[in-house]
Structure formats: structure tokens, C-alpha cells
């Protein structure tokens, strides 16, 4: 299924046809604007659909499931720690975000559901960052802007500028392959034997 693994350096926004070049197991380092988004910001986008001021162009965008830790210093936001959050919390929201708003990359941790994998087919990739590695990630990211701060620091919509953010692991590709699913199948087989 997967041939030689490739490493890519990509700039955002990411065109759909480029997404198709990636295969599960590849690595990507990302440069350009990415939007931090988790439960509340995504719900707001899906509900209100009036986010143009916050996100000029969501089509082909890379979103990051992350609730950053930042501090305001002399009027500017300094990013302190910014690793990924658990993406599966947003399982129910993501298919609509992909279908309606055509995002092309989701960065997070832990992977997402079969429904999300189906919605990603031909359209988007899921990239894994290393959970808990907030200090390393913060070195590769800068705050450009923040909106919807009334949702609280973790849930606000942060516009981040990435410089070679990664290497991120292509763990769910746009061809229906998921590294998590492969691992999980093996785990379930092993569980049966180990529970005996």
C-alpha cells in the first residue's frame, strides 16, 4: 500500500491536488498561516458563518487543533507553549467543516473517526504533531492575530504563522488510509489474546 516515505516542506494555503500527493507515513513541515481551532471556534464557524473578518479564506486552509498558552507582552502576544489537542473531540464537527469550507489540512493528535476519514477522501489530510510537545512547537510558531478571545484563551481563534512546523506525520491521508486504524486493528487482536 505505502511505498517509499517522503518528506515535504509545504507552504499554506494548500491546494487540493497537492494534498493527493501525500500518503500515510509521509512527513510534512509546514510554513505559512495556520488557524488554531477546537470545539468552540469550529462550532461558531459552522453556526454563524460570518467569520470572514477572522479568517479571510478558509478554503485550502490548514487548521490546528490547539489551545495555545500565550502571554501579552508590550501589546504583542508571545506564544509560550502550543502543542496539539485531542482531535477526536471534534469528530462530529469535522465532516461539515471539510464539506462546507474545504479546509485541506487538519493538524492534531490522536487521529479522528472513520466518518472524518471518509469526509477527507480526495480533499484533506490529517497530520499528527507530538502531543505535549508545546515548547518545541512554540519555537516554530508565532502569533499573528487572535479573535474571539471571549471564548477563553484555549478556545479562541488564533492566527499563527508557522515556520517549518513539524515534521508532522501524515497519519490519515486523502486516499482513505489511516495509520491509527492500522495500529488499532492490531491492538484489538492483541487485546483478545492478552485478556485470556
Amino acid at each position: 500500500m505505502v511505498s517509499a516515505l517522503n518528506s515535504y516542506e509545504w507552504n499554506t494555503p494548500i491546494e487540493r491536488k497537492k494534498v493527493l500527493e501525500l500518503h500515510a507515513g509521509d512527513r510534512v513541515s509546514m510554513t505559512g498561516i495556520i488557524y488554531s481551532m477546537r470545539d468552540q471556534a469550529i462550532r461558531r464557524i459552522l453556526r454563524e458563518k460570518t467569520f470572514e473578518k477572522a479568517i479571510p479564506k478558509l478554503e485550502d486552509a490548514a487548521i490546528y487543533n490547539c489551545g495555545p498558552l500565550a502571554r501579552k507582552k508590550n501589546g504583542n502576544w508571545e506564544l509560550i507553549s502550543a502543542g496539539p489537542t485531542t482531535s477526536s473531540r471534534m469528530n462530529a464537527l469535522m465532516p461539515e467543516l471539510i464539506r462546507e469550507h474545504h479546509i485541506s489540512a487538519i493538524i492534531g493528535k490522536g487521529g479522528m473517526s472513520q466518518e472524518v476519514l471518509d469526509a477527507m477522501k480526495g480533499k484533506a489530510v490529517y497530520l499528527s504533531a507530538v502531543g505535549g510537545s508545546g515548547a518545541v512547537s512554540a519555537q516554530q510558531l508565532k502569533v499573528n492575530d487572535v479573535q474571539w478571545m471571549e471564548l477563553g484563551m484555549p478556545e479562541a481563534l488564533w492566527t499563527l504563522e508557522a515556520k517549518l512546523f513539524g515534521p508532522l506525520i501524515v497519519s490519515m491521508d486523502a486516499h482513505g488510509n489511516s495509520l491509527y486504524e492500522n495500529v488499532q486493528r492490531n491492538v484489538e487482536e492483541r487485546l483478545k489474546t492478552l485478556q485470556l
Binding site: G25, C66, G67, P68, L69, I80, S81, A82, G83, T85, V130, G132, S133, G134, A135, V136, A138, Q139, P154, P167, I169, L179
Partner: peptide
Amino acid sequence: PVAKEQLKTILKNIGLAKGKKVPMCQDT
């Protein structure tokens, strides 16, 4: 190899957080 690469990142993160005196994870 995927696990090893990630463990290396984790160890680097631990060192960086301690050295720079910043939280290792954004979720404190």
C-alpha cells in the same frame, strides 16, 4: 521508527522547557 522519532521530540521538548523555563505542554 515513528515512535522513536516522537520520543526524541518529547525528550527535546523536556530539555527545552526546563532550559527556557516555559511549560512543557500548553495544557497546564
